[in-house]
Design a protein around this nucleic acid. Structure first.
Lengths: 358, 358
DNA sequence: CTGTTAGCGCCTTCAA
DNA sequence: TTGAAGGCGCTAACAG
């Protein structure tokens, strides 16, 4: 019942030419090698008629290239962000004729090795290694043996991994932008929700948080504004946002704006403000980061800097394919672009949670 | 620099045996064919030492089987649901030694064909076809040419696709359960948010909504309870939930419970209730469907029936692999289990939005 | 018990 | 301008 796949030699037979000729025609190298137009047409017509599709396995075996990418990420939680990344990567790959194997490690190093092995066994042309929470990590050895780009990962350790291409969100800049937004709209009593005032201890999402914080502080300092308070949180979730914001309100310190370190904290902040009878943005403005799905659904709509998942994933994919098609990779001596870091901006989604007090 | 992959014959050479012998040993068929223990050890040892990994392309070419699945879905929106499905499918596949190619069509039929071709070119062993919103659709021809299971899709049209294995959420049952929950806790003035009272016109998420509605009505009728009102929505998003709930309140009809058809509508309902000074659940109970991420973060926590994405995807994957390994597929005459429909229950996530009024 | 042989389907010299 | 031959790495018959 399974109509067996049509092979190239069947097409050649049908067209009355040699398999190699058919191969050339179908690979589009006919002109280059001056194959008669009639032969070309016969081949194409036969291929069409038989519904010929090349066997990618076979071609891959022969050429050593499969037009296939591997996408490996950790993180099972926080999946809204990851989902879009995977999707964007797949789209970008597809647009250039690549398919992608997707794997998730859940942070398990052994599983990661297995996954990478399985992909490497299937001869993927390159790898995208991603984490959902920007952070530093060791790069598995497998990654240094083939073209690889790091998505949202800052590599630590040597082993040549330092010169892998990296795609990262521009957190520092986002921190600056957020602070500037508040300053420009006349806010002076700003509280930070999510991290303490010291960038050195900006746990738990180390890199992102620390960079954002530094960015924000640089702008505020320049404007001569002191943070009223900065509330560290161990989990960036609504209950924490609620708790911290309630604390701020209870302490009775002046407060005209909350700089929340992600939308979930902001959601908690909204709830706390709401239950205390404070209005957003009339009494307190709120700015945040991520642009989670629900940000637009909060009332009033949450003004937030979008984590550029799609742009990052697309960029990573394009960089990877460039790398592959240029024929370089991390293992090479790489006189070229190898090791570049690409920072992707976090665009502002301006909604209704920031008042103009200027 | 790229250490070339070690091949089987190198291992055989190193171990001093023939390639085929090495192949048998490494495939675990050594005992079966009584290969001397010493030879076995030498082979294994050599493989280990050289870091041998079989080339899956080559094996696939030879055996016609790749331990690779394709996962193709439409839907770009509503991604929270899809993300988890993909992830669960990948995990389930991985657990049985399969990798998965992921593709998204965004509803574009041409793209879908291309994607399926690309996967078929790469010799996937089977296919999972998914949609994010349960609905009926035509099944592409490619799917009938290899083992395929339908995830969250009700096929229409003939072409043999009717006997594909299907995995669907048990919406009817969920509707019953939701209604029963409200009835058992003493609610009598129930409004439905999201669909009108007539199952025939339960647009827009046709199947799911209609089934849920029928289920709910069956229980309510049996309990002798009439719906106070049923509010159809064209979009199941918070603004609609807000609008419809506000309308219910304004009309001043008695209301002790809201049966929202998804969490986003429920979110809007919460907001409307909140802004009118009504308390959940003291004044109005709310039950919903999906268990979106934010359901637990609403205050009070939203009681909802979880859309069983993970269970569904895992089930679909396991069914598919069973199918593959049993060597059947849709094209066969299939005297067996072919064409089964598997209904996956929607488990209750009981939180704080339902009061006990009994 | 082990080795030889013959492809899987394609691509790429090389010779005609 | 086209055809023949060889081989990518692996597995499955079949000899030995």
């Amino acid at each position: 019942m399974v109509r067996k796949r049509v092979t190239l030699s069947q097409v050649a037979l049908e067209a009355g030419v040699a398999p190699s000729t058919a191969s050339l025609v179908l690979a589009g190298r006919a002109d280059e090698l001056r194959i008669s137009t009639t032969a070309q047409e016969r081949v194409r017509e036969a291929a069409q008629r038989l519904g010929y599709r090349p066997n990618a396995l076979s071609a891959g075996l022969r050429t050593g290239t499969t037009r296939t990418l591997g996408f490996v990420s950790d993180s099972v939680a926080s999946s809204q962000l990851t989902g879009e990344m995977i999707r964007a990567a797949i789209e970008a790959a597809r647009a250039r004729g690549y398919m992608v194997f997707v794997g998730e490690t859940g942070g398990d190093a052994q599983l990661e090795r297995d996954l990478l092995d399985a992909m490497s066994d299937r001869q993927v042309d390159g790898l995208i290694l991603a984490t959902m929470l920007t952070h530093a990590r060791q790069i598995p050895a497998a990654a240094t043996r083939m073209p690889t780009v790091l998505l949202n990962i800052e590599p630590i350790g040597e082993r040549g991994s330092v010169d892998l291409v990296r795609v990262l969100p521009d957190e520092y800049r986002a921190g600056q932008d957020a602070a500037r937004l508040l300053v420009d709209t006349g806010h002076r009593r700003i509280h930070i929700i999510g991290v303490g005032a010291d960038p050195e201890h900006a746990h738990p999402f180390a890199l992102a948080a620390a960079l954002r914080l530094r960015g924000a502080l640089s702008v505020l300092t320049e404007a001569g504004i002191d943070i009223v308070s900065a509330q560290p949180a161990t989990q960036w979730l609504p209950p924490e946002g609620f708790r911290l914001t309630s604390a701020v309100i209870e302490r009775g310190e002046p407060c005209d704006a909350l700089l929340c370190f992600n939308d979930r904290l902001a959601m908690g902040a909204y709830q706390a403000l709401h239950e205390t009878g404070l209005r957003v943005p009339d009494d307190v403005s709120v700015v945040s980061f991520d642009d989670t799905t629900f940000a637009r659904w909060l009332r009033p709509g949450l003004t937030t800097f979008a984590f550029p998942q799609r742009a990052m994933a697309k960029r990573a994919t394009d960089e990877l394919i460039d790398l592959i098609e240029r024929g370089e990779h991390a293992g090479d001596e790489g006189g070229g672009v190898t090791g570049a870091t690409h920072l992707i901006p976090l665009p502002l989604r301006s909604r209704e949670s920031v008042a103009d007090r200027s």
